[in-house]
Design a binder for these strands. Sequence first.
DNA 1: CGTGTAAGGAATTCTGACACG
DNA 2: CGTGTAAGGAATTCTGACACG
Lengths: 111, 111
Amino acid sequence: MADETTYKDKKVITIGIVSELTGLSERQIRYYEERKLIFPERTPGGSRKYSFADVELLMEIANKIEDGVQTHEIRKEMIRAQNNLNKEVKRKMIQGQLNAQFGIRNGPFSK
Amino acid sequence: MADETTYKDKKVITIGIVSELTGLSERQIRYYEERKLIFPERTPGGSRKYSFADVELLMEIANKIEDGVQTHEIRKEMIRAQNNLNKEVKRKMIQGQLNAQFGIRNGPFSK
DNA sequence: CGTGTAAGGAATTCTGACACG
DNA sequence: CGTGTAAGGAATTCTGACACG
């Protein structure tokens, strides 16, 4: 499940390549960062580094922008989605604790 | 099986990042290319682009070099491995043809 | 608001060569 | 043989700003 050999999240792609992969201009990519939609890492020299996950996210962002959604709205959507994910993870961790303490059964709350 | 969402083989990493990931100097990385051990793509401007698979291969190469294996030997090993792989693929394709024509059974040659 | 562009500078990468051995 | 390095140049990336709207 937690595949440690995943390259999707390693930030290793420079902005020029990302521009080619997404079809977005470097200006657009930097602007979406300014609007807090994307968070590249940096080399010691200051060059941005993106992951494949970032590339995919950028393409989703581009689609929404095309649909007339403003960056501020997109940001709110992303925060909402992130909160839901956090809640989900927390719920699963608590359930995991319970299972560990009381054993795994198949009651209505064990899923 | 043939996972199309694999990022492992996309050539998107520049040499500086590869150097950080592998711990090898750019000089070493370029030299291994000169010796035909690694085959990066190029940007229109001429910069090298590597994949995660390349990064892994480079680390294997580095290990062998440390063990005193010469680049020429490493190259021969790689060619041998590639040939075996090709044979394997060909064998499977032929078997696939046979299965398609005569149906799938569990005889001694169907594996 | 989102994006293009010219500007100046800094970081990155490239090649071919000399050096050591 | 494998690798470091200085050299000069070209490609890449960075930031802040003006422009349009």
